[in-house]
């Protein structure tokens, strides 16, 4: 069992990183969206190996929806969504490679050199039950705050994409009405 989970972990890890790289290598933007989804599915698999079944599944479910929307956005807004022409839409390429490699080396060094407490999940614990009790018990305020934040984001997103500004058509430029009462 241990060996199988080890092998699965390495397979998922390599898959997550390689598909993550393919997102920025492939010519087709729609394919890039689905490569990113593959990366999320691989990370979800790792989470499930780590006994966080609920988080792994919810990550995969969320990303399946989000990447589909992303693919639709590509087709709607972007040039060359299907990769009919080779795509090299990059800027400051060398700086980006240095920054990405630097971030990897620094974070990996922290992971390898720093000492973390060795307290694994004790046997007999059901992480999903624990998370449910925590979400609807002591940490309900955090959970509810996330919900309220998402509601605010939905309102903000609708306001951003709406053609009409707050006080009139957005393109024409609009002024807020004056606060003084008009005299009849």
């Amino acid at each position: 069992m241990n060996l199988i989970s080890d092998i699965l972990f390495w397979v998922f890890s390599v898959a997550a990183v390689v598909t993550g790289l393919l997102v920025f290598i492939t010519d087709s933007m729609v394919r890039a969206a689905y490569w990113l989804m593959a990366s999320f599915v691989a990370v979800g698999g790792i989470l499930m190996i780590l006994d966080a079944q609920f988080l792994g599944l919810i990550l995969i479910l969320m990303m399946a929806g989000e990447m589909t929307i992303m693919a639709i956005f590509m087709v709607m807004f972007m040039m060359n969504p299907a990769g009919l022409n080779p795509m090299t839409m990059v800027h400051q390429h060398r700086t980006s490679i240095v920054a990405g490699a630097g971030a990897f080396v620094a974070l990996a060094a922290v992971g390898l050199l720093a000492e973390f407490p060795d307290r694994p999940v004790p046997p007999g614990v059901d992480p999903t039950v624990d998370l449910g009790v925590e979400l609807l018990g002591e940490s309900m305020l955090i959970f509810e705050s996330a919900g309220v934040a998402l509601l605010a984001v939905m309102i903000g997103a609708v306001a951003l994409v709406s053609k009409r500004g707050r006080y009139g058509i957005a393109e024409e430029g609009s002024e807020e009405p004056s606060l003084e009462m008009s005299e009849e």
């Binding site: 890890s13 920025f24 990059v90 800027h91 620094a106 992971g111």
Partner: peptide, 24 residues
């Protein structure tokens, strides 16, 4: 696990800095 997550983060940093298209 931390090395893998660092690799994912590094690839993300590269992509966010190098791509021109907003969705990328």
């Amino acid at each position: 696990l931390l090395v893998v997550s660092a690799a994912l983060f590094g690839v993300g940093v590269y992509g966010a800095l190098s791509q021109q298209s907003f969705v990328m």
